[in-house]
Amino acid sequence: MSVVFFAIAAILVISGGIGVVAARNIVYAALSLLVAMVGTAGVFLIGLAEFLALVQLLIYGGAVVIVILFSLMLTKIQDFEFLTANKQWPIALIVAMCLLGLLGISILVEGSATTTMGSTNISELGLSLFSDWAIPFELASLVLLIALIGAVVIVRRDNGEDK
């Protein structure tokens, strides 16, 4: 039964991904990204990671796609509207296909040893995050703070700049 749900989520993810790289209009590409992110949250649910499915919906569906759409709205959208692939797209397609073949062969040859799934509950995850991983957690919060301040500094208009 879970295979059926996984197939539905996988179809969402793959069609959303293809929509991102094939759309001619950038707003459609951003909305395809949203579809791919929601599908990824479904895959996380099937992988018994409920908390991360929620985080995925909140961060990607609620923040990342909205940030992209807002920044498109704040600039003149007609300059972005019609997207084209560049001249090297056949080479890019060949590279991607070769990588897919390589990864697929290595995955299929290696096989998987374990077939039983195990879940981790949220309290264990939080305990591990704040005991074993406390210092990386604090560093990550510092990185996030610095990145956001840096983004504000980069976007801010200089004094001498007109408009």
């Binding site: 090297q88 080479i91 397609l93 590279v95 296909m97 990864l103």
Partner: peptide, 14 residues
Amino acid sequence: AILFCIGIYGVLAR
């Protein structure tokens, strides 16, 4: 693997 290859194509071709 499939999603990663779609991303590689997007980075190289758009």
